[in-house]
Design a binder for these strands. Structure first.
Lengths: 161, 161
DNA sequence: TTCACTGCAAACGCTTTGCATATGG
DNA sequence: CCATATGCAAAGCGTTTGCAGTGAA
């Protein structure tokens, strides 16, 4: 069962998506809203394949093609953001009412952490002025070893992965 | 013909690579040095396919498998860095005596610009302390519209790409 | 001599595309 | 109605792997 704020959020994103589809002449199909719902049913990162499996397990009849297509729409209306964490696989994340943040990727266990630092905004502003470049978005990933893997390495020296 | 500083640089990286191979029990094959030479023959970004084509055009007998294998070694000994600019294709860049920098990617024309900002180091330091995470490297990409495309859009509103 | 390295081609995994069918407007 | 969206399967494309032959040590 969804908690109150979650329902509230879902109502909002549904409306945003609905408006977006209307304004851009896209059809409001049940599949698109089912995918939006699935994306907003949990908080973490996901990739297309896991979303596909997740929906199949719930007996949704959905195809990968539609997932890719719909994610593209969700990216366009800013309800989802896309990340590449160094591998050739796209990761996605719901972004409505989710504070702007960046990522720490542990190269031993693959876990992804989040952090915020206002100084990134200063960097963007400086670069915009300096190079006359209009910055629309950014991606900052820090790679290294998280505290869990750091302590494990001290005893076993075995990467987990 | 190579200019003086270029030759100097190539002598240095050849030695670094040679030492690295020796210390790690890897063989010093002519292919590996040919690839290193090719990588250090120009300054910009490249991907595996263009490196392959470039070497084929010079009548090197080289395979993609060896390119991937050798790039892995060059990454390991820090003579090359790897980037993902939002697409599912890896970009590489020689990194010896090349100042640490980050990238601006124009989403209209695909051009990649470079910039430096010392504040990124401060962010890394803060996050390391805050989350007890050992940061080994980072990737900061700013996406947007470069000045060339910005002015072109004003007249034609046509993305180039 | 030996075994890591090579080239080649096939396999792999994520993503895109083609096409017949279904359906929102 | 019919243009857009869908599911499915095949194709694309960057990357990885398997294997027989090669050559560095």
């Amino acid at each position: 069962m969804l908690s109150e704020p979650e329902t509230e959020i879902f109502d909002s994103v549904k409306e945003i998506f609905s408006n977006y589809l209307g304004e851009h002449g896209h059809r409001k199909t049940p599949e698109r809203f089912a995918i939006l719902s699935e994306v907003y049913s949990s908080e973490g990162h996901f990739d297309i394949e896991s979303l596909y499996v997740q929906m199949k397990e719930k007996n949704y009849r959905v195809s990968r093609a539609t997932l890719y297509n719909t994610i593209e729409l969700l990216l366009d209306c800013k309800l989802v953001t896309k990340h590449q964490f160094g591998k050739n696989i796209a990761h996605f994340e719901r972004s409505y009412k989710y504070a702007q943040h960046d990522h720490l990727i542990c190269q031993d266990c693959g876990k992804v952490y989040e952090f915020c630092d206002p100084r990134i905004q200063n960097i963007k502003n400086t670069v915009e002025g300096l190079l006359n470049f209009k910055v629309t978005n950014h991606s900052l990933n820090l790679y290294g070893t998280c505290k869990d893997c750091h302590s494990k390495q001290e005893s076993t020296n075995q990467p987990i992965n």
